[in-house]
């Protein structure tokens, strides 16, 4: 059975760590990183990448347009 899997790419230097994408993510894929970017923000990242379905909810609420979303179908 085909399964839809997603992945997000966060532009970590643009991210301000507002956490809105983390809250908006229905699959608990995202979290704020312990590390910080050059501005000192804990940027968003895929903590549980295997959960991502590529639903784009994170990108929809991102105020800084720093999220790119990919989605693909896999057979297994």
């Amino acid at each position: 059975m085909a399964k839809v899997r997603g992945a997000v790419v966060v532009d970590t230097e643009v991210c301000k760590g507002c956490n809105l994408c983390v809250v908006a993510c229905p699959t608990q894929t995202l979290a704020l990183n312990r590390n910080v970017n050059n501005k000192g923000y804990h940027y968003s990242y895929m903590e549980n990448p295997e959960n991502c379905t590529g639903c784009t909810n994170c990108a929809a609420v991102c105020p800084d347009s720093c999220i790119t979303v990919y989605r693909a179908k896999f057979e297994n």
């Binding site: 230097e13 990448p49 590529g54 784009t56 990108a59 990919y70 989605r71 693909a72």
Partner: peptide, 23 residues
């Protein structure tokens, strides 16, 4: 798996080119 997903043909959302790159 992530590498396989992140390919141009799988792109479903990207920043609009009408937005500038300025932070």
């Amino acid at each position: 798996r992530i590498k396989e997903i992140i390919k141009p043909e799988n792109l479903v959302y990207a920043k609009s080119p009408v937005l500038n790159d300025d932070i």
